[in-house]
Amino acid sequence: MNLISASEVVKDFSGHRALNHVSMEVPEGSIYGLLGPNGAGKTTLLRIINQITAPDQGSILFEGTPIGQEHRHLIGYLPEERGLYKKMKVGEQALYLAQLKGLSRQEAMKRLKIWFSKFEIEAWWDKKVEELSKGMAQKVQFITTVLHEPKLLIFDEPFSGFDPINVNLLKHEILQMKARGATIIFSTHNMSSVEELCDHITLINESETVLQGEISEVRERYRANKYQLIFQGSEEQLAKGLDSRFELLSMEENGMGQRATIRIKSEKEGSGDLIRNLVEITEIKAFKEILPGMNDIFIQVVNDTNVKKGA
């Protein structure tokens, strides 16, 4: 079941198309990564799902029904540009924002107490936001985003502006929310966090979807048939014994032995063929396929589409 399905979404601003027939299916209970260079249209799509702006064409379904006012309470949104009322006290502000998301005052108060003690920030309750540091204010804002335990959480660049300790805290919380059954969409430039957290991704470049799918499937699609081998023996031994169907790309000394990167030249051959060959010439200590990182895929796909457009 898809929690969100966006289909053929088009959004035009004066003289510029921000989204061009973008579709996206977000399965319930998954973590969905929205990737793309700056200005690709990620924030616009997130705003449309948040009903901050409306699409010019296309539709957004929430659990199969067109998204509407009744869904606002079911979404928590952390925008890229964080911000709170500077002159308002932390506690009062958190209560206000929670009530706007449909929580009763009492319930909001109860949950805020729990979160404030969890983040060890009880002492901030009566401080004005302008007295807090940037990192402190971000913590407060994160709490106000998740307090009403929404079904869908939307984070626009959630890791920017946090120090590494808080990034880990945030990742931990995101995984917790997934475990609780929430669905999470986030946009990011941080590719390691994508590999770590995401189940699905959509890569948008220049207002169009250029890559989409389950992350394991995407990495599979971009595999380069490269394998890593750690073995006992010498480089000559390996080079000499390796069949011409395989290519030795690199070689280095490793604490455990020699480490080699080998490519299978032909699509027809599988890893089994390579292993059969290797067993005969070396003593294998470890063998694994090298899947491309999201970082490489990101750069490759964006460059490819830019070249295509340029041509």
Binding site: I52, R72, I75, Y77, P79, E81, L84, Y85, L100
Partner: peptide, 17 residues
């Protein structure tokens, strides 16, 4: 202007029209 400058506006309009 205050809501715009402090950037809280986006959070608010995701909760209310």
């Amino acid at each position: 202007i205050e809501e715009k400058v402090s950037r809280i506006i986006e959070v608010i309009v995701s909760s209310v029209k």
